[in-house]
Amino acid sequence: MEFVRPDSIEAAVAALQAEGAACLAGGATLVAMMNADLVAPERLVSLRDVAALREASRRPDGTVVIGAMRRHRETAEETDLRDGQRVLREAAAQIANPPVRNMGTIGGSCAFADPAADYPPALVAADARFALAGAEGRRTVPAGDFFRDWYETALEPGELIESVILPPAPAGTVGSYTKLARVAGDFAIASVALALGMDGGACTHLAVAVGACGPVPARRRDIEAELLGGPLGNAEIGRLTDALAEAFDPVDDVRASAGYRRRVAPRMVRQAIGEAMQKLGETQ
């Protein structure tokens, strides 16, 4: 095993081209897996000194770019994330505990793609894109396509995450992230990432992604599109939760059974939408 610490994205990508190379971001997952003898990369490419990956910025149009090495604590406090984009702040604030939030990064967490992690549903609900850099150049991938399967992403060997890009959220929308877990900071039993806008009883913006209920976040854009422009009552929310349930493929594990996840997730969606409507001053 060898250890390298490049100081630019180009040098990091070059170092990653070796067989068996892996990025070391915050270490919160990779080092834990190394300690457990689950992985043993032949080359560790530490991204610590790549300054560009540590930055976050807001463009004049409201797009927010978050460098892959931004830590959970920083993202939880990111005032550039506004309106519906706040779903990501709320997700970051609920990851693990303070020392782990001081280490773990958004790029590292997303590259590992734990199906019960907090960022994937939040980024899918925020319509975020991943900016990736590799030997062939740069590309962006929508969050909905980035997460592919259990612990699998669109990252090709030799490619790294440069940043996540959140499009502007319509003014007046709210973003929220609700997690059900055994204790605060544990991986989710189920989670709901939501961005919602309402105007005079009519839905103007709706994005709901459910985490920890399948290999990738569940989202039904088709039903969301049909619900735009109308009220969000029991019947409408029921249509959405029924459709979401078709996309669920939950595991049985120490946190909860698959059956429990199927039962609780639709109720969490209903509750999250109800709470968001209250914040918006709308009645259900």
Binding site: A36, D37, W150, P215, D249, V251, D252, D253
Partner: peptide
Amino acid sequence: GRLGKFGFGVMKKK
């Protein structure tokens, strides 16, 4: 062994 440390939930899906 080492792989037994990894959750059975996802292993079953795999």
